[in-house]
Amino acid sequence: MNSENYGTHIKHIRQKMGLTQNQVAEALGVTPGYISNVENNRTAMSLRILTYYAKLCGCSLDSLVGTLDPEYSETALDRKLYNAIMQLDVDTKEKLLKTIELWNL
């Protein structure tokens, strides 16, 4: 997703949930005009509203805007790897490290 279709993505999520702009606006404490402006790429949601929108839709902020910035996708992947590695026991971590070292030859 890029910034040109951010609003379209937001609109698609709303429609998929069967919600109107008025319903979303009421749930988020904003005006229907604000939602319209977001969906038509005339404005971007604030972080606070994005957080509420993600909660309303039952999705993560990553799924809403994570790929707008190409560098963010890499950061999100790094975080996923880190979290997965942190759940491994020490022996498995050592094996994983040896495997990675072999790949880098």
Rank of each mutant, 00 (worst) to 15 (best):
residue 36 S to N: 10
residue 42 R to A: 00
residue 88 L to V: 08
residue 98 K to N: 13
residue 18 G to M: 02
residue 48 R to N: 13
residue 25 A to Y: 02
residue 38 V to Y: 06
residue 47 L to F: 15
residue 13 I to Q: 09
residue 16 K to L: 14
residue 57 C to E: 05
residue 97 L to A: 11
residue 6 Y to R: 07
residue 47 L to V: 12
residue 64 L to E: 08
residue 18 G to V: 05
residue 41 N to C: 04
residue 69 D to R: 04
residue 67 T to F: 15
residue 91 D to A: 14
residue 59 C to R: 11
residue 99 T to Q: 10
residue 50 L to K: 11
residue 16 K to Y: 04
residue 2 N to E: 12
residue 63 S to H: 10
residue 13 I to V: 08
residue 61 L to C: 00
residue 5 N to L: 01
residue 79 R to H: 10
residue 68 L to G: 02
residue 85 I to E: 06
residue 84 A to S: 14
residue 43 T to W: 00
residue 53 Y to L: 01
residue 39 E to G: 04
residue 73 S to C: 08
residue 12 H to S: 14
residue 22 N to V: 13
residue 48 R to T: 14
residue 28 L to M: 02
residue 38 V to A: 02
residue 58 G to A: 03
residue 60 S to H: 00
residue 29 G to N: 01
residue 78 D to M: 12
residue 82 Y to W: 08
residue 67 T to N: 13
residue 69 D to N: 11
residue 44 A to M: 12
residue 65 V to A: 09
residue 100 I to V: 15
residue 37 N to G: 03
residue 35 I to W: 06
residue 65 V to H: 05
residue 104 N to W: 14
residue 105 L to V: 14
residue 38 V to W: 05
residue 32 P to M: 06
residue 9 H to G: 02
residue 94 E to H: 09
residue 97 L to Q: 12
residue 50 L to C: 11
residue 70 P to N: 01
residue 25 A to I: 01
residue 2 N to A: 08
residue 102 L to T: 12
residue 26 E to C: 00
residue 19 L to P: 04
residue 57 C to P: 03
residue 87 Q to G: 07
residue 48 R to A: 13
residue 53 Y to S: 02
residue 40 N to Y: 09
residue 48 R to F: 15
residue 49 I to F: 07
residue 69 D to S: 10
residue 20 T to S: 15
residue 79 R to A: 07
residue 47 L to K: 07
residue 38 V to H: 05
residue 74 E to I: 11
residue 104 N to K: 12
residue 66 G to L: 07
residue 26 E to F: 01
residue 60 S to N: 01
residue 27 A to R: 10
residue 55 K to Q: 13
residue 73 S to G: 09
residue 44 A to L: 13
residue 64 L to G: 05
residue 49 I to T: 11
residue 83 N to D: 15
residue 31 T to E: 06
residue 38 V to I: 14
residue 30 V to W: 01
residue 88 L to W: 02
residue 85 I to R: 09
residue 4 E to N: 13
residue 30 V to Y: 04
residue 6 Y to M: 00
residue 45 M to W: 06
residue 8 T to W: 03
residue 8 T to I: 09
residue 74 E to C: 10
residue 22 N to E: 15
residue 32 P to V: 06
residue 15 Q to P: 05
residue 50 L to S: 11
residue 23 Q to I: 03
residue 27 A to W: 04
residue 49 I to V: 11
residue 66 G to H: 03
residue 42 R to F: 00
residue 31 T to H: 02
